[in-house]
């Protein structure tokens, strides 16, 4: 009885505590890293961890509530984790001049092309499919 009450309290605590959920996400990431390293698959550990969590959620072994607040924190502050990587530009002085400008043009023009082509392709496929396949009500 007391162990059951402890389990219920522990679950309730996890559902409410963001730091605990953040720690739990880190544990799944480390587990993913370990799996990726031992099986030598060429997939980053974070992705393996994501699939582990998806499998646990789908099988009902893990509830969305036990991680949602932690996950929302990570997703909201994601840009912070990119900042140290941006400073790598300091090690590439050759990109500070003309060449850097050309690279920037490739990145800007390329990204506009990729975004437009992808979004239009998806939209076309979506319209074609909702006209030909009964995929339920249209989503706008």
């Amino acid at each position: 009885m007391t162990t059951r009450r402890f389990a219920i309290n522990a679950r309730r605590g996890l559902d409410l505590s963001r730091p605990l959920q953040i720690a739990l996400l880190c544990v799944f990431w480390l587990a993913g890293e370990a799996v990726a390293r031992t099986t030598e698959i060429p997939v980053p550990g974070g992705i393996v961890g994501m699939f582990i969590v998806l499998a646990l959620l789908a099988s009902g072994r893990l509830s969305l509530l036990s991680m949602r607040r932690g996950a929302n924190w990570f997703l909201a502050e994601m840009l912070l984790f990119f900042i140290p990587a941006v400073l790598a530009i300091m090690d590439h002085q050759e990109l500070m001049g003309w060449l850097g400008l050309k690279v920037l043009v490739v990145i800007l023009a390329g990204t506009i092309i990729v975004m437009s082509v992808t979004a239009l392709a998806v939209d076309l496929c979506f319209r074609w499919r909702s006209a030909h396949v009964h995929a339920g009500p249209a989503l706008d």
Binding site: I22, F28, G49, M50, L57, A71, P84, A85
Partner: peptide, 21 residues
């Protein structure tokens, strides 16, 4: 500051929640 970049790992795991939803 490398530890900050490492946090991209658990951030990737966190994608599981919106995807599952």
């Amino acid at each position: 500051t490398q530890w900050l970049v490492l946090l991209l790992g658990p951030t990737t795991v966190a994608f599981a929640i919106p995807i599952y939803e």
